[in-house]
Design a binder for these strands. Structure first.
Lengths: 177, 177
DNA sequence: CCAATTATAGAACAAAGCGTTCGGAAACTT
DNA sequence: AAGTTTCCGAACGCTTTGTTCTATAATTGG
């Protein structure tokens, strides 16, 4: 193992990025400001990340990791069967909510591509296993991503459980008889 | 009426933007290059648009206008009823295809937010009229946007009509009995 | 405990873009 | 033909970027 300092520095940068994302938004944030908030030198930064975009990528990857983490691995839950869909969706929504403000700033600040792209991939991978048709999976993926995005945009107004239930119900209609 | 020169200049800029979007992508394109290709002065440009982003916004608005233009207004078509859904979707797909390469460059170049955002709004507005539930409309909007984005990303590999038919079939399952 | 390795900080640097401003030329209007 | 509007080209100041270099501090290993 090399050093924990590197991980610590990276975490500090990503943390500062998330904070500034919430306060000012992606566009109104300069690399220098991030580093000032993170107490990290410029030279160090450019040795770790590929510019501001690199930080965003890392941040998004972290969030998606949580969202798409095998829901099955959660202890004490049964994620199979029909109402398993609702449970999984609710699980993902709760993890998105953890980084709620920052994700919201990302989406509203014109930087949705990164987050949505990663979300699409992760969600599709999961849903695909429960469908026969590839397009069926795409269809359901789109619906779910829209649900999440909408939810974030409206500042998490709706109840995660209710949303998940609604989604599962309509999805059942798609998956058919 | 003031002058047609303004409109002509704007169109020239947007046209050059679309061309460069196809060739180099949004990020690898500078304002100076756009204006050189458009034969427009810098001072003029900044009097008409709000920077590069402003041009993108205008470009996207133009595309969306076509996509979401009242399909009912098309002569010789009946867009009501069940297979009307498929017809409308196919109509929208064909209009997206008109600006295919540029839209693709926009999506792949990390600038999907603008286009997808506009598309979501336009599509939702349409779909909402055919549903009782607001969430139902969101669900179907998400599925359709995913269809379009996927289609663009895969370089329009699939047949528009087939895609539209698939969508209509699954949507029928959602709209239920 | 000292030496070698590795991470970091800080400053200075060149390069690239941006957005604005100003005078003058060109085009349209009446 | 005079007046109004649009356009151009050049110049300017400013911000941000990413790199490089030197020196300091922390970690590791003998």
């Amino acid at each position: 193992m090399t050093d924990r300092r590197v991980a610590r520095t990276d975490a500090s940068v990503i943390g500062a990025f998330e904070r500034l994302l919430d306060e000012r938004g992606y566009a109104r944030m300069t690399v220098r400001e991030i580093l000032e908030a993170a107490d990290v030198g410029r030279a160090t930064f450019y040795a770790h990340f590929q510019g501001k975009e690199g930080v965003m990528t890392a941040f998004v990857a972290g969030v998606i990791d949580h969202v798409a983490a095998p829901a099955n691995a959660e202890p004490g839950h049964d994620f199979t069967g029909h109402e398993g869909v609702a449970a999984q969706v609710e699980h993902a929504l709760r993890h998105v909510h953890e980084h709620g403000h920052a994700v919201r700033a990302l989406l509203m600040g014109g930087c949705s591509s990164e987050f949505i792209g990663a979300l699409r991939e992760a969600v599709f991978e999961r849903i695909r296993k429960a469908t026969r048709d590839d397009y069926e999976a795409r269809f359901l993926t789109g619906a779910l991503v829209e649900t999440v995005v909408r939810w974030v945009e409206t500042d998490f107004a709706e109840d995660p459980q209710a949303l998940a239930t609604s989604y599962a119900a309509l999805a059942a209609g798609v998956l058919g008889p």
